[in-house]
Amino acid sequence: MFSSQEERILQRLAGLDPDLMAYIRDFAYDTVYERPGLDLKTKELIACALLASLGSPGELKTHLRGAMQAGATEQELRETLLFCVPYLGFPRVVAAFSQLADLQARQAAKQAQQPE
C-alpha cells in the first residue's frame, strides 16, 4: 500500500506508539485501503479531501504524495482541493494548497539535485 514510503511511515508511527502503528497498519491500510470498489488513486484523492477538512497538514502531505504516486495528476489534486471550498471554506483549502505547494517545491529541489 505505502509503496516507497512504507518504511518511513511505519517508523514514524512506531516512534509515536507501536500499538498505534499496528492499528493504523492493520485496519486503515490492510483492511480499509484493500477493499475493492475504488482504485487507489480515487481513495487517495478522497483521503486528501478528508484530511484537508480535518486540518491535518502532515497527514495531508503524505496523502498528496500518495495520490501522485498512485497516478493522480497535479490538475486532479488541485480540482480535488478546489471542490472542497464550498464544504470546508477558504481557510482550510488555502492551507491544503500550501501543503501541495510545499510538497511540489521539495520535489523540484530533489530533482534539481539529481545528476543528469
Rank of each mutant, 00 (worst) to 15 (best):
V93I: 15
A101Y: 07
A22C: 05
Y87M: 15
P115K: 09
P115D: 14
L16N: 07
A109F: 02
A72R: 07
F90R: 12
A95H: 11
L60T: 12
L50W: 00
G37E: 12
M1E: 06
Q75N: 12
Q113Y: 03
P86M: 05
Q75M: 07
L103T: 02
P57S: 13
Q99F: 07
I46C: 13
Q113R: 14
S53Y: 00
P36S: 14
L64N: 07
A14F: 00
T62A: 06
P18L: 02
G89L: 03
G71D: 03
T73R: 05
K41Y: 09
T31C: 11
R8I: 06
R8L: 03
A28L: 13
F90I: 10
Q99K: 12
A105C: 12
A112M: 05
A108V: 09
R92E: 07
Y87D: 08
C84W: 05
V94Q: 12
D102G: 07
F97Y: 06
Q99E: 15
L81T: 04
T31L: 13
L16I: 11
M1A: 10
K41C: 04
Y33S: 12
L13W: 02
M1F: 01
A72E: 07
L20F: 14
G55C: 00
A101Q: 10
A52P: 10
P36V: 08
A96K: 03
L16Y: 15
A96S: 07
R106L: 06
L10T: 07
D19S: 13
L51R: 00
E79D: 15
I46Q: 13
D26N: 15
A67H: 01
A28M: 11
L40H: 00
C48F: 01
A105I: 14
T62M: 04
G71C: 08
T80P: 05
L50A: 08
Y33H: 14
P91E: 11
A95W: 06
L88I: 01
G89I: 04
Q113H: 12
V93L: 08
A108L: 15
L20C: 04
R65V: 04
D102T: 09
R106Y: 01
K61T: 10
L88R: 11
M68L: 09
V94M: 15
E59N: 11
V85T: 14
Q113C: 06
A101H: 14
L13H: 01
V32Y: 06
L100F: 14
K43W: 04
Q99T: 05
V93Q: 09
T42Y: 02
L10H: 03
P57N: 13
Q75W: 05
Q11R: 02
I9E: 15
A109R: 11
A49R: 13
H63W: 02
Q5M: 05
A72D: 04
Y33A: 12
Y87F: 13
E79Y: 00
A28E: 08
E7L: 13
A70M: 00
R8H: 10
A96T: 04
A70Q: 09
S53F: 00
A108T: 10
K61L: 05
A52M: 04
C84N: 11
L54P: 03
V93S: 10
L51S: 06
L50V: 01
G58M: 03
V94H: 14
